[in-house]
Amino acid sequence: MGYKLPGTPLKRAEFEKAFKVEDKPEAKYAWAAGQALSRFLEELKNGRIVGRRCRNCGKILIPPRMYCEHCFRPTGEWVYVRPVGRIVTAVVSYIAATRERLEKPEVIGIVEFEDAPGSGIFHRLNIDPELVISRKAFGMRVKAVWKPPKEREGSINDILYFEPVGEGEG
């Protein structure tokens, strides 16, 4: 393809010099949590994890929804599950949301609840990054560690993180 492609690339300095307009969107939102997630968030305040069971397929959905997307019908009942599960995948973040390097790397992963096969949430994991890199973290049994009740606000952050379940623990 001996073709000269169109386009006018700018080096950073040229970009700085080019005529530009700057704008910041003033976009503020209040996202409605809806029936299912509202209850889920409220129960986090109580230190409990609640899902919704589909009476058709029997699956417990966490995060809970008022409908089962597999069967496409309303879910039938609220079900508490123990805040215990297994690590399905885990990663070590060395950068913040804004791309700066973190002083202390953060471990994040998906935890699939023991009482609700196929349903997981993602959260921080309080484990050694080396366990992630060596893949020993996969399948590890973990439990939620909660904020003190007074500090909870009905947020996913009411769970501080998940950490390994000790020997002989629940």
Partner: peptide, 25 residues
């Protein structure tokens, strides 16, 4: 997700790293 995920202050790469690592495992 603004309610369950953004409060954890994620960066975009997390989600792909999780998928990549699951695939590797």
């Amino acid at each position: 997700d603004p309610i369950l995920e953004r409060p954890l202050n994620p960066n975009l790469i997390w989600i792909f790293a999780m998928e990549m690592h699951r695939y590797m495992y």
